[in-house]
Amino acid sequence: MSEVQFFNVHKDFSGMEVLKGINFTVESGQVACLIGPSGSGKSTLLRCVNHLETTSSGTILVGGRMIGYEVHGDRLIQAHQKDINKRRSRIGMVFQSFNLFGHMTALENVMMGPVKLLKVPKARAEAEARELLAKVGLADRTGHYPAQLSGGQQQRVAIARALSMKPDLMLFDEPTSALDPELVGEVLDVMKALARDGMTMIVVTHEMGFAREVADVVAFMDGGVIVEAGDPNEIISRPQHERTKAFLSKVL
């Protein structure tokens, strides 16, 4: 099970409150899109899921279990780093700036996790990595270094790298925001295919077309709160709140 539940999640950066009580649930197999203006807290919320950011209060459960904290008597205690790493290895993350390892070829990037973390034999890891790269349409780019690939290709390698760990959940942090417009489509296509395969996904995005087409649920965030959430067509076509309407009128 890989449902993600947010219970009253708060986060402040040295006094600046960026998340002000988030309550939200993403069911297993669902695609959730987080939309909203920059600075609304959507990326921070996403980064709390795999504990790249700590939460100030509240709870996030992935598959029914917290990441980064354990119950200790009647209080929470910081989890052991080893446990955090183990949980993270089952959650794929794709970044706005790709963050492929620059000193490794596309193939090496995709093989690295299985070989070093899961101790998969090299030959098998390589076969699987080639398969994944073929799946994202890059079978002919395995030997290329990130600097030799276009943004769209790099992001597809990054998705293959995240998938190499066989995650239960995928987090996408504005995966197409750094791409030239003509390269956005190829990345979204890979993500759509992933959604069709039943992957649980949380996607921070400005691509309203994608949200409408693929998402099971859309949450509009502003000022650290979820202003409204629900069916993508409802939210995007018939927003109820003024702030949602104002935002959508600018991006659509």
Partner: peptide, 27 residues
């Protein structure tokens, strides 16, 4: 080495030391 490199490595589940060894130091 850009912070995103370490972040991607941590997100995959690598520890700080593994991240240094496999990702940061080589670059």
């Amino acid at each position: 080495v850009p912070a995103g490199q370490s972040e991607a490595s941590h997100a995959m589940g690598f520890s700080r030391m593994e991240t240094l060894r496999h990702v940061v130091i080589p670059q």
